[in-house]
Design a protein around this nucleic acid. Structure first.
Length: 284
DNA sequence: GCGTCCAGGTCTACC
DNA sequence: GGTAGACCTGGACGC
């Protein structure tokens, strides 16, 4: 399947927009991005190569999934117009940066974000790998999908504590999975909510999702009005701007001029070095 | 080998 | 509304 990309689009820049490419079922090898989406109840091998050649079936649904995963429909021109005037962000237009890599389903993004809270990146990777290995559906290649809400809903808190070893996050995983599987919670509909404040409140209503997780999920949902500051962001701000004292107040001032794009502006400022070299940014 | 600290926070009980 | 303190795990670090 050939998919037309917007001008300036760079698959590698989008794939490495944040850490998702490092968590299964995502796999980034060279300029090839893989995932195992569940389509029609079955797991499929999805391979996306530079030039956006996609090899999978059924084709129609794949177009929508890939366009959503790579945020191909996001109009970044208003953001670039602002970034052009900022010396630290003028690179964004030239590199085609600003599209955040997303999972095929919002459910996967929510669960993964929950598993990034209050732990090291290596622990996040371990927990997600166990979840996929235990509950994912096998694709023809043998690689596994991210678990469906139904698969997770069948497991109890003990499983998430003792097998996934998610610790105190276990009851949150059970609650979210069972609410989604039971039809009481439609996280996929979050992509069509336009009002940022409303969407943020709905995300904060999810157990285990606080300001950090909600605001980072907002960014994946195309809302950049909040900064989503965490300890990593604060550390990076201090590295980039060593003279600042109050990182949160500084960030609010520094990126205010970007308006509804402020969260994206900050993220690209903090991660610009990831796109300077061919080195894996998470390898450090 | 062992103990301590902390990492891409959240929730609850208090005040 | 703000603020301690508890919460799981795994890796880094010091001894």
């Amino acid at each position: 399947v050939q998919i037309k990309a917007p001008p300036g689009f760079d698959l590698l820049v989008t794939a490495r927009s944040h850490g998702w490419y490092d968590l299964p079922p995502f796999e980034l090898s060279g300029a090839t991005l893989r995932h195992v989406p569940v389509i029609g109840g079955r797991a499929h091998d999805l391979t996306i190569r530079a030039g956006l050649r996609v090899e999978v079936s059924p084709k129609t649904e794949v177009r929508q999934i890939v366009a959503s995963m790579l945020q191909l429909d996001e109009d970044l021109l208003p953001f670039y117009a602002l970034a052009d005037d900022d010396p630290a962000l003028a690179w964004a237009r030239a590199r085609g940066a600003g599209r955040m890599l997303r999972a095929p389903a919002v459910f996967e993004d929510v669960v993964k974000m929950l598993l990034t809270t209050n732990c090291s990146w290596s622990l996040t990777r371990i927990m997600v790998t166990r979840l996929v290995g235990e509950l994912g559906l096998p694709a023809p290649s043998g690689r596994r999908s991210f678990p469906t809400p139904e698969a997770m809903a069948k497991k109890d808190e003990k499983f998430f504590r003792e097998v996934v070893r998610a610790g105190y996050r276990a009851p949150h995983l059970v609650k979210i999975a069972r609410d989604v599987a039971g039809g009481r919670l439609d996280v996929e509909a979050f992509r069509s909510i336009g009002d940022t404040a409303d969407l943020r409140e709905r995300l904060l209503a999810l157990p285990g999702i606080g300001p950090y997780a909600a605001e980072n999920l907002l960014r994946l949902l195309g809302h950049y009005d909040f900064l989503g500051l965490d300890s990593w962001c604060r550390g990076r701000l201090k590295e980039l701007y060593p003279r600042i004292r109050d990182t949160d107040a500084f960030a609010a001032r520094r990126y205010k001029k970007f308006g509804r794009w402020m969260g994206l502006a900050m993220w690209l400022d903090l991660t610009r070095e990831w796109h300077d070299s061919a080195q894996d940014p998470l390898a450090k």
